[in-house]
Every structure is written in structure tokens, then in C-alpha cells.
Design a protein around this nucleic acid. Structure first.
Lengths: 344, 344
DNA sequence: GACGTTTTTGGGAACGTTTGCACACTTTTT
DNA sequence: AAAAAGTGTGCAAACGTTCCCAAAAACGTC
């Protein structure tokens, strides 16, 4: 069974014209007489003609589609980024193809190469927490595939990047904990090789320093799998508790929710005694118990900005040599004591 | 700037062979001598040759990609379905293209037609809550586009469908509320024209009937936009409260979280007094306060089953006349009093 | 060594488009 | 009346593949 549509050839045959005439009439070229144009347009309308994008892609060697790689679409941050990407892409006539790495380097590479071979015009990617070696991306890039990184970006890769102001977001969150009287503030974070991990650690340290609180490395726990494995997370929490933290600053969406979950599960008696501040774009934060202070990333906007940069690369006439790293501000949503904790 | 890859032509030229020979060598056809095959394969490997899928699509008039339409990817249920779809699709050599309707009929139609014109081989769709008129889908279907519906399915459309056992899920949830002593149980639900709305209403009614509780239409509130507009939801909740419900059964993911949110916002003093049971696939349910009993749909499995059915349609030699409607069981996750309510 | 087989290779059309070029016809200019 | 210019159309190539068909090469057989 095959999906059948009418082609330019069908129209040409039906109208006794050549394919070139039909093509030109449809594209409203000046060479074609008004009369013929009307005829063709009317008939095309009648048979509901749609140009075959596959044929166009082959001809023009581009597909008007852009690839997206995120670790997980079931993640508020990423799904919001995707919405931002779509909002711009569709306006500019591009289609998006979404792939998930599930935080696996292997899967990420596989997906990117699949996308590349499917003639995407450009790639938007947030690296998986496992990824360290990005030579495969360098290869594609050097062959002419435009790439824009967002959120999790590599350090030494000369292209456009869009990130949140991770330093400031972390600083603010940590400071908030300090100002609410916490002094033993742990830091639960992602894989050490991610850019966001490093930046957020710095913000945390800076806030501690500002208030003359000693930075203790043993209070920092890294989760290689970014919260994908609950066992890893529970282990980290377990290792943290003996230090009796009165606050935890958590550096990613999945880890934040996962950590609260782990706390409730393994140590319900302390779960409500530890103040939590963490990165998350969940729109359900208000429902959480214990409640928390959250750092919201401008996800939608990030998607938009990244897409604009990518399309500008795709459509650039000459080679681009000047690249930007856009930094967008995060938003601190303070714990709502009057709601979330009313019932404690 | 254009993305450059090596083609069969390049290989042919480099090796002094014809394109046909190269093509056959790469596809390991019997006609080609071992020697030539080795030569070609080695060279192809060296230049990292990848067949151009666009060219293949044009030639074979199929794209090995399947379209997905859901209302929102930032919805646990749908993102889990998508994961299920992907798990099967990739195994079978298909790529997926995801589009969101955002519960808008217009957007849904636009997206479907865009996908169709991009030569998808088949379509997996959960209708938007607005959708009533599906003639556009009938047209595509009659032109030979295989379609499988999941979750939100139309009544009179002869094709494969995959749904949850909505009746039983609703029955169980409502019965659970009754068994915990609730007698005035409201029902907050989606747009009236969705299949799931009707089925879930029936389950709710049946449970009431079993325990000889009178069904009161005024306790049922429909949300046309499926919880996309918080105003609509707040209004519904506001209209419900005067009846002093001691339990609410809610029939969709978004509505469930939205309703709790609305309750907390507008009437925090009663939020914890009303028992809530609702459909949701959120993996954060354990964090919610007030806690709730949830009906979990087998989302991942639903995606898998739907995809298998779709691929069987795509790859069918002859026309299919027998269609199935697969019904998958839901899971009732009871409120965990020992955790969620400990701090009430 | 002539002929028939078998094995291996190449030519060219096709998938649906766009577009440079050439052609035919009409109109204008000289 | 002839040349030039303008208008409208068609031919054919190209994008990267696959595959039917034919051709060439290699091998046996008598």
C-alpha cells in the first residue's frame, strides 16, 4: 500500500503542458502567461497538489529540517526548550526532528549520525552527561554541518552557544539558603565533565565565600548519570547525610526531583528539615512536599535564541568566523512558605 | 555553506567503476565478484560513505519515518508513549517525527498535513481535545496513509487503535474513593468529545452505581481545553466546591495536576480535606502534597503496541481489512498515607 | 577455435523537482 | 519587408539511488 499524491508530471499531462511550464506557473514566474498560470493553479488546487519535499531536498541538497538532541524529552526543561525551538523553526519554514540520548554517549553519537545522514540542515544539541569525546561532532562540523550548542556546551568548540547564567543562578540559590540561616549546605550535582556542572559549582562556591563559609569538598556529590539511575542518587544522598547538611543546593532538574524523592524514601524524618534549592523547570513545583526553592532556566527563550543562531548559520552566504555565546538569566523562585509548608 | 558527503558516484569515479557496480557491491549482491566488493567496501569505509536517505526516499517513495501527533510532549503520559514508540521504531529501522497539537484542532491538522507532505510512511496520533471533525484524516487514510490511533481515538474510523482500559481504570479509582469513605465524589474531566472522556465517565458512573450512590450531573465538570488554560480549570473547581465534594475523580494527567494546583491556590483550606484520585503518569506523584491516588496508564507499552500495528500496516503486502482495538490495563497507585500525609 | 554458459560489469531510465537554454511565435523597430 | 526584441513554452540535465537490460569477459566443451 502506498501513499499516492499528484505530481507536477500528472498536472502537466492532464493539461497538455510540459513539467517545466507547470513548475514555473506554480512558482509564479514572470515568463508564464497569466492564462496558463490560472489554469495550472486551478488544477493544482483541485487535485490538492503538494510539492514533494523529498524531491526538493534532493535537488537543493537541503531538507529544511533541523535536528535536536536532548537527553530526555520527559524533562520539563528540555520540553520547554523544544517548544521554543519549534516556535521559531516553524515560522522560518523549518521542521524539527527530535532525538533523545537518554544521557548515553553512544546513543547520542548514533542519533546525531543518523540525523546527519538524513540531511538535516543543522543541529541543536545539549550534550549527554556521559559525553566527553566530541570528535564525531567536530568531523561533522568540519564537513559543513552547522551546529549550535545549548545548555550543556563543550569548552573548546568554536560555534554559537546558548547557555543560562549558571554561575549567577547557583550563586543566588546558594545565597538564598545561606540567608535563610543554613550553614552546612551540600551540593548535589551532575557528571563532572559537563560545562553546567563546573559553572554551577563555581556559583555555589562563590556564595559560600561571600558569607565566609568554608567550602568542603566532601559536601559535593556528583552523579554520573544525571539522576537517571535512582540507585546512584540514593547512594549520593546516603553519603551526604552523615555530614548533617541543613541545606542542599542541587544543580539539575532530574536530580532535584530525584533527590527529594530519595530523601523521602530513605530518610523521611529529615526530609522536611533540610532546605532544598535546586535547578528545575518543573511546572509542578508548587505541589511538592517538602517544598523547595527553584532556579528556573529560561528554557523557551533558550530554544528560540539557539534556533535563530542556527538558522543564521544555515542561511549564511559566506563562512562565519565570529561566534557568540549567549547567556540568559535564570529566575529564582523562592519557596512559598505560606503554601507549601502550611501543613508541615 | 553546505554539508558535503561522498556519493556512490564519487566512489565509482575514484575506483574507475560504474555507479551500478558500486551500488550492487555495497548492497552485497551476488552478481559482484568478491574482489570488487572488497575494493568498494574498503573505499566506502575509508571515505565514510553513507547512502543518502533522501535519494532513497525519492526512489522508493517511502521515507522510513513515521509521524507522531500528541497534544504536548511536556506531558508525562505522552513522553512515555513516545519512548515506547521510539523503542520499536528504531529497531525496525524507522525514524520518528514528533509534532505537537497543543490541544488545537487547527494546529493538529496543519501538522498532520505537513507530515503527510513530507512523505511519512505512517501516522500515530492521539487526537487533540478540540478535534471533532476528522475528515482530513479520512482523506489521507483513503489515499493510502496508514494511521493508528492511540489513547484518544475516534469512534467510527476503521483502523487499528490502542487504548487503555479507561472504564476499568476509572471504576477502580472511583471505587477506591468510595471505599475510603467518600460519598460526594465529583468528576473533573476533559472535553466531552474525546473518547477517553466518555469511557472514563462510564467507569465513574458504574462505580457509583455499584455502591448505590446517586449520580449527580452537576458534580461532573468538563474542561474543553484539557487543562491547558488554568483559568478554565480554576473556574471548574470553583463551581464544584459549593457541592462540598469529599472526593474528586479526575480523568487526565494535566487536569489532575492542574486541579490540585487550583485547589491549593484558590482554596488552600480545603485542599487537604478532599481526597483526590486521578489519571496521571507523572513520576513525581510521590512528591505531591496533598498526595493522591493515581491511575497510571501503560504509556510505554501503548506506544510499543501502536507502533507495531502501524509498521504491520505499512509493510503489509495486501490491503488490510481486519482491524484491532487493543485495550491495555491501567494500574491504580494508592495514596501512600505513610509518606504523603505524614506531615499534614 | 567456434560456440554456448556463466559471471561480472556498465548504460540508462526512473523517482519529482528546478532551471539554463533553445525554440517558435508575435510584436515592434528600422 | 527584414531585422530585432519580446513572450511563452518545451527539452534536457541535475540531485543520489536502484535495477532492468545489455554487453563484455571468463570459462568450458566438443
Amino acid at each position: 500500500m502506498r501513499f499516492e499524491t499528484s505530481t507536477i508530471k500528472d498536472i502537466a499531462k492532464a493539461l497538455g503542458l510540459s513539467t517545466s511550464t507547470v513548475s514555473r506557473a506554480l512558482r509564479d514566474r514572470y515568463e508564464i502567461s497569466e492564462e496558463t498560470k490560472k489554469l495550472v493553479l486551478a488544477y493544482a488546487e483541485k487535485v490538492n497538489y503538494r510539492a514533494n519535499p523529498i524531491a526538493l531536498s534532493l535537488k537543493e541538497r537541503r531538507s529544511y529540517s533541523i535536528g535536536i538532541i536532548v537527553s530526555e524529552i520527559a524533562n520539563n526543561f528540555f520540553s520547554q526548550v523544544i517548544n521554543g525551538i519549534e516556535s521559531i523553526a516553524y515560522d522560518r519554514g523549518y521542521h524539527v526532528i527530535i532525538s533523545q540520548s537518554h544521557e548515553s554517549h553512544k546513543q547520542e553519537k548514533l542519533n546525531v549520525e543518523h540525523l546527519a545522514s538524513r540531511s538535516i540542515d543543522g543541529l541543536l544539541i545539549a550534550l549527554s552527561s556521559e559525553t566527553q569525546d566530541i570528535t564525531y561532532l567536530r568531523n561533522l562540523y568540519s564537513k559543513g554541518l552547522p551546529i549550535v550548542f545549548f545548555d550543556r556546551v563543550p569548552e573548546d568548540f568554536d560555534t554559537h552557544k546558548v547557555i543560562a547564567n549558571n554561575f549567577k543562578g547557583s550563586f543566588d540559590a546558594t545565597e538564598h539558603l545561606i540567608l535563610s540561616g543554613k550553614r552546612t549546605i551540600a551540593h548535589l550535582t551532575n557528571s563532572e565533565n559537563l560545562s553546567i556542572t563546573k559553572e554551577r559549582l563555581k556559583g555555589y562556591q562563590a556564595a559560600l565565600a561571600k558569607y565566609h563559609i568554608e567550602f568542603k569538598p566532601e559536601l559535593v556529590k556528583y552523579c554520573q548519570h544525571g539522576g537517571m539511575h535512582s540507585a546512584e542518587l540514593e547512594q549520593a544522598v546516603k553519603e551526604l547525610l552523615p555530614y548533617k547538611p541543613d541545606g542542599i543546593f542541587i544543580s539539575s532538574d532530574r536530580l532535584t526531583t530525584g533527590c527529594i524523592m530519595a530523601l523521602k524514601k530513605t530518610n523521611p524524618e529529615v526530609a522536611h528539615k533540610i532546605a532544598i534549592a535546586g535547578f528545575t523547570n518543573s511546572n509542578l513545583v508548587e505541589l511538592f512536599s517538602p517544598s523547595l526553592t527553584s532556579v528556573k532556566q529560561p528554557a523557551f527563550e533558550m530554544g528560540q535564541v539557539a534556533t535563530e543562531l542556527l538558522i543564521s548559520m544555515i542561511e549564511a552566504k559566506r563562512e562565519i568566523t565570529e561566534f557568540e555565546t549567549k547567556i540568559l538569566d535564570t529566575e529564582l523562585v523562592r519557596m512559598q512558605k505560606n503554601i507549601g509548608n502550611r501543613f508541615l
